[in-house]
Computed example of a mutant assay.
Amino acid sequence: MDMKVSQSPFLSESNSTHRLMVDLLAEADIRIGGDRPWDMQLNNTGVPERVFAGGSLGLGESYMDGDWDVPALDEFFYRIMKANLEQRVRPSTVVWQAIKSRFLNRQTLSRSRRVGEQHYDLGNDFYAAMLDGRMTYTCGYWRDAETLDQAQEAKLDLICRKLQLEPGMRILDIGCGWGSFMAYAAEHYGVECVGVTISREQVAWAKARYPHLPLEFRLQDYREVEEQFDRIVSVGMFEHVGHRNYRTFMEVAHRCLKDEGLFLLHTIGKNERKPYSDPWIDRYIFPNGELPSIGQVGDAADNLFVVEDLHNFGRDYDRTLMAWHANFEANWPRFANELGPRFYRMWRYYLQSCAGLFRARDIQLWQWVLSKGGTPDVFPRIS
């Protein structure tokens, strides 16, 4: 280990902060200056100081600035999470994030549109180059799939079968994205769909793509929906709701679901209740986002819904993210001049770090099937 440290001109063995970083990374079998794909290469001074002062935010921003590199960021973060190193670094940024989350509703009607403007409105061409042919920006289902398109269609069909869709049903899609589920359900199961999203880019793209299908796309917050539907689905939107609004979200779904209906909630989740989101993800990727724990989802559904089924296929998100990353890398030359090198490093960090977290099982992917009063002998075990 000492030999590897001395190979980096940007690391001082006599500096206690530098030594602490070396020792912590060694617990995850990561070397500074090593020659393995997950080893850290320092390109500038001050990285250990930024990491211990800013935690996740300092680590991510120093990477975006080009101060350090790791060829395989996904494996780097997998090792960090398996060694629980994030528990050893608790900077003031985490404390401030927890305070904000505890005392502020960061997902009010006025604030909810920020993530649409910052993240989802990056440009339809950009997402089309990264995602599958249907523009599905959620976890694929890889059990019998070989390609990203196959995995996404398998996920969409799984949802349709869990909801027991029948021709003529009217479906509400909360957080409909670019309409991949709605279009698939209409094409294969003969249903009508209403989708709500806070992204103008998504609404414009979906309306232009599917004028021939019985689909309605609305630029609307979920809290503003009033009418009832035979089925409700929400795929990858609950992560933007926030713990102060979980109960409200479930009340809206309960209000809008017919008594005999089913509601499928597809969401990323975390293993414990934490009063804050990752500071780097919050600032650069998903502003005001928050991952629920399994208990928080259950609390929000109390006395409103019966849990008919709960399915975890979080491991599949690792493979999905790495497929998105491969597409991103392959198509980056088309966007390099417009978005620039700092965006490239930010997006690469986002996709591969999240893949590492799913690989380490630090975060999960759940599909909940809920009913208003229970459906004995109706909901099948199909997952």
Results as ranks from 00 to 15, higher is better:
311 H>L: 09
362 D>K: 14
363 I>Q: 09
206 A>Y: 00
29 D>M: 12
131 L>S: 00
118 Q>V: 15
160 C>W: 01
215 L>Q: 02
120 Y>S: 00
279 P>S: 07
178 W>E: 02
375 T>I: 13
360 A>G: 07
321 L>W: 05
83 A>R: 06
215 L>V: 11
202 Q>W: 03
62 S>E: 03
189 Y>P: 01
278 D>K: 04
89 V>L: 09
219 L>R: 01
177 G>C: 07
223 R>K: 14
195 G>D: 03
151 A>M: 04
37 P>C: 12
300 A>S: 13
176 C>M: 04
249 F>D: 03
259 D>G: 08
177 G>Q: 01
319 R>A: 13
69 D>R: 12
76 F>A: 06
355 A>V: 10
6 S>I: 10
346 M>G: 06
168 G>N: 12
366 W>V: 07
375 T>G: 02
225 V>E: 10
80 I>Q: 03
203 V>S: 00
56 S>G: 10
3 M>P: 04
276 Y>S: 06
357 L>K: 08
380 P>Y: 11
10 F>L: 05
329 E>M: 09
232 I>N: 00
157 D>I: 06
169 M>P: 02
179 G>N: 01
327 N>Y: 05
220 Q>G: 02
376 P>K: 12
177 G>F: 00
41 Q>E: 15
208 A>W: 08
325 H>T: 11
320 T>F: 10
252 V>S: 15
165 L>E: 03
338 E>W: 11
377 D>W: 13
85 L>C: 07
105 N>A: 13
53 A>V: 06
198 I>L: 13
55 G>T: 03
347 W>H: 03
374 G>C: 10
54 G>H: 03
282 D>L: 03
351 L>H: 02
235 V>S: 03
270 K>C: 08
348 R>N: 14
369 V>H: 01
116 G>Q: 09
233 V>C: 05
124 N>Y: 06
250 M>E: 03
54 G>F: 02
55 G>N: 05
332 W>S: 05
48 P>N: 13
30 I>M: 11
13 E>Y: 08
275 P>S: 10
83 A>Y: 01
179 G>A: 03
175 G>I: 00
208 A>D: 15
188 H>E: 12
136 T>G: 06
283 R>S: 13
325 H>D: 09
191 V>D: 00
163 L>H: 06
24 L>R: 11
220 Q>R: 14
301 A>S: 14
161 R>Q: 15
243 H>C: 10
6 S>D: 09
120 Y>F: 09
262 L>G: 00
339 L>S: 05
158 L>D: 07
283 R>G: 07
146 E>H: 14
274 K>N: 10
22 V>K: 05
122 L>W: 02
275 P>K: 08
122 L>V: 01
212 H>E: 15
226 E>S: 13
323 A>P: 02
120 Y>C: 00
